[in-house]
């Protein structure tokens, strides 16, 4: 039996090693590349680890943002930091608003027996079956006509409608796990429904709210299609749009492109790893980042 379990562990760790390389290997290579000189990147064979650690491409992003054209860095590098800020503003607002609006909608779905409850829940979820591409055409057309194109608020609004169904679904299933007795006690003490939600439900649902907020942030951060179609000037570019401008340009040095890629995934990866418990439980309660 001892022999057997040692063999078992050996097989498991061999598989685990393959999985580990497959999971983080490609990304670590991107990180390693971003700390090298451009000429080192063009070496054959490639250099696995940066030696020395070069921060030029990171400095380029800051210099470009501060000095503008004077800095002499590529156009994309100059606008990158601004777009990074835009992404933060959009994803942050989406996360906050989605949780507030989502909890309000999720509460009656979880707690009240009203006519049309199932229709409402199903309708909210089914709205996500319509491909974003078919909605993009009218949205762009209308946004341009009413002067809402090229504005961050429009992207906040659109991202909200994409994350709300997931957030509502996740929160209503979370609210159901909170014992009804606590709420009844609050009602007897004379709290109104809204007070019950604010004073009793929300504090207890903090893990659920956290996972909903993080998921909303990550979805909004990674959104590309609408960010691309609804931005006309660098003032409203998001980081995914600038990354795509980098990646489809053949004249920019590899190291600048790679560094932009690395920097633009720092927030989502850091959040994902810090809040991994919340995210995994949130994902498994039926929410999906698509």
């Amino acid at each position: 039996m001892h022999q057997h379990s040692r063999l078992r562990l050996t097989i498991i760790y061999c598989c685990a090693a393959v999985l580990l390389i497959g999971t983080v290997g490609p990304f670590l290579w991107l990180v390693s590349s971003s700390f090298q000189y451009e000429r080192q990147l063009l070496n054959r064979p490639p250099q696995w680890l940066p030696n020395p650690i070069v921060l030029d491409s990171y400095r380029e992003i800051f210099e470009g943002a501060i000095l503008g054209e004077e800095s002499g860095v590529p156009y994309q590098s100059r606008i990158f930091l601004g777009s990074f800020g835009n992404s933060f503003a959009i994803a942050g607002s989406v996360a906050v608003i989605a949780v507030v609006v989502g909890s309000l909608a999720a509460y009656p779905l979880a707690r009240l027996n009203f006519r049309g409850r199932n229709v409402l829940l199903f309708g909210i979820l089914a709205s996500r079956l319509i491909p974003a591409l078919s909605l993009a055409i009218p949205i762009v057309l209308v946004a341009k006509q009413i002067g809402m194109s090229d504005r961050l608020i429009t992207l906040v609004f659109i991202n909200l409608s994409f994350v709300l169904p997931y957030v509502i679904w996740l929160l209503q299933s979370y609210f159901k796990t909170i014992p009804m007795e606590l709420e009844d006690a609050g009602r007897i003490d004379g709290c109104s429904r809204l007070q019950v939600v604010i004073k009793i439900i929300l504090p207890l649902a903090r893990p659920g709210l956290t996972s909903a907020a993080i998921l909303a942030f990550l979805v909004a951060w990674g959104e590309f299609l609408f960010a691309l179609l609804l931005s006309e000037t660098p003032a409203s570019y998001t980081s995914t749009v600038v990354v795509s401008l980098f990646a489809t340009d053949v004249d920019v040095s590899f190291v600048s492109i790679i560094t932009a890629g690395v920097v633009s995934v720092i927030p989502p990866i850091v959040f994902a790893l810090i809040f991994q418990r919340y995210i995994i439980s949130g994902l498994l309660s039926g929410s999906l980042k698509g």
Binding site: L20, T23, V24, P26, F27, W29, L30, S33, L218, W221, G222, E223, F224, T240, V243, S244, F246, A247, F254, I257, I258, A260, G261, S264, V265, P268, I269, F271, A272, L273, Q276, I279, I280, K289
Partner: peptide, 19 residues
């Protein structure tokens, strides 16, 4: 660690594989 690839936006993923 599975969450690392999951958290990467699709556009950055494309850039990564292009490299």
């Amino acid at each position: 660690l599975l969450l690392v690839p999951w958290a990467i936006p699709s556009v950055v993923n494309a850039l990564l594989w292009k490299w």
